[in-house]
Design a protein around this nucleic acid. Structure first.
Length: 139
DNA sequence: GCCAACGTTGGC
DNA sequence: GCCAACGTTGGC
């Protein structure tokens, strides 16, 4: 079991839209960055991730689960790009903002804080536990 | 809307 | 294989 973080601009794809997809989930398409893609290739079914709203909100708003391992991205013919499918598991009771993560002890090394441009990031178990606590949910 | 950070592309 | 130019992301 590994932990991740998925960024999305809510204008383009929001948590509410993700929730509306239900257990069927949705293809996390559109990633055109090797690091992010490699992270997705490392994912397994059942891995959990935070759903983060970039730009608007700048906060983790929910928890998602990987429900299909990496497969070709249907939005491109370029074989370099593939992606996983994720489904919404539950919302955070209180969103955890970037601002909070920046000052919270134990989150200094979070990619969210110091590698802002990476759109699919790994999260350590320690970071996962802290953000879940801040979000008011069980890790 | 601006711009810093950073990744990618392409000429040499 | 280097590096300048360029494009994109995302915080502010």
């Amino acid at each position: 079991m590994k932990y991740w973080l998925f960024k999305s601009e809510p204008d383009a794809w929001s948590w509410d839209q993700q929730v509306a997809k239900g257990d069927a989930g949705e293809e996390w398409h559109g990633v055109r960055n090797y690091q992010a893609r490699n992270n997705m290739r490392a994912m397994q079914i059942g891995d959990l991730g935070f759903f983060y709203h970039s730009n608007i909100g700048k906060e983790c708003v929910g928890i998602v689960e990987v429900c299909a391992t990496s497969a070709p991205d249907s939005t491109t013919d370029d074989p370099r790009w593939d992606c996983v499918h994720i489904r919404a598991v539950r919302p955070l009771l209180r969103p955890v903002t970037l601002e909070t993560c920046k000052v919270e002890p134990g989150l200094e090394q979070m990619a969210l804080v110091n590698n802002t441009r990476l759109s699919v990031q790994p999260v350590t178990p320690e970071e996962w536990a802290i953000v879940c606590r801040l979000g008011g949910v069980e890790a």
